[in-house]
Measured scan of single mutants.
Amino acid sequence: MDETGKELVLALYDYQEKSPREVTMKKGDILTLLNSTNKDWWKVEVKITVNGKTYERQGFVPAAYVKKL
């Protein structure tokens, strides 16, 4: 869990989004888990830094590609 009590997951593999509802992740990324009720796709939040500014983006990743921490 992070400092706000949200559950975290670890990306076990790289994943490139294939639709606007998904998010890209790299092996080793730590993501915030938002919803894991679907056994195949989990909703996560990723933080992306571009030119020194951090953005948060929500989307789905394959559940088999992440592990709860």
Rank of each mutant, 00 (worst) to 15 (best):
F60D: 04
R57M: 05
V23C: 07
M1C: 13
A64D: 10
G5T: 09
V9S: 02
K39G: 10
K68F: 08
V23G: 02
D14V: 02
G28C: 06
N35H: 07
Q58M: 08
W42P: 01
M25G: 00
L12K: 04
V61C: 04
L34K: 05
A64H: 11
D2Y: 03
K27Y: 04
N51F: 10
L69Y: 08
V23R: 00
W42M: 04
T54M: 13
G28M: 02
G28P: 00
T4H: 13
T49F: 12
V23T: 05
L10P: 00
F60A: 02
E7A: 08
Y55L: 11
K47S: 15
S36V: 06
A11R: 01
E56A: 09
D29R: 02
K18H: 10
D40L: 14
Y15Q: 00
I48V: 14
E7F: 11
K67Q: 14
E56W: 14
K67N: 06
T37C: 11
V61N: 00
E17Q: 12
K43A: 08
Y55F: 13
R57Y: 05
D29P: 00
K18P: 04
E22S: 05
S19N: 11
T24L: 02
E56Y: 15
Y55E: 14
K68H: 10
K67G: 08
D2E: 15
A11V: 07
E7L: 12
E45V: 13
D40T: 14
K47D: 08
A64Y: 08
G59N: 00
K53Y: 14
R57I: 06
K6A: 12
L10A: 06
K68P: 09
P62Q: 02
G59L: 03
K47F: 12
S19F: 07
M1W: 14
K26N: 08
T49R: 12
N35P: 03
S36Y: 07
I30C: 05
V46L: 13
T37I: 08
T54E: 14
S36L: 04
E22L: 04
Q58L: 06
I30Q: 05
K6M: 11
L33W: 01
R21W: 15
D40K: 14
K43V: 15
K68A: 07
G52Q: 06
A11K: 01
Y13C: 10
R21V: 09
R57L: 05
I48F: 12
K47P: 12
E17I: 05
R21M: 13
V61D: 00
K6Y: 11
K39M: 12
L12Q: 05
G28S: 02
T32Q: 10
M25R: 00
M25N: 01
Y65K: 07
S19Y: 05
A11S: 06
Q58T: 12
L69W: 09
V50H: 14
T24Q: 04
Y65N: 05
E17R: 15
K26C: 09
E22K: 04
N35A: 10
N38Y: 09
V66L: 14
W42L: 04
M25E: 00
V23K: 00
L8Y: 13
T24D: 04
M25S: 00
E7K: 10
T24V: 02
Q16N: 11
E3V: 13
E3T: 15
L31Y: 09
K18M: 12
P62T: 01
K47V: 14
R21Q: 14
P20C: 07
M1T: 15
L33Y: 01
T32F: 10
L31C: 07
A64W: 08
L34E: 02
K26Y: 11
V61F: 00
A63P: 04
V61T: 01
P62Y: 02
Q58W: 07
M1N: 15
E22T: 06
L34D: 01
E45P: 00
L10D: 01
L8K: 14
V23M: 08
Q16P: 05
R57G: 03
E56L: 15
K67H: 09
L69N: 04
Y55R: 06
P20E: 09
G5H: 09
L34C: 06
V9T: 02
D29V: 03
Q16C: 10
I30W: 04
K6Q: 11
N38K: 07
V66W: 01
F60N: 04
K43P: 01
E7D: 09
K6T: 10
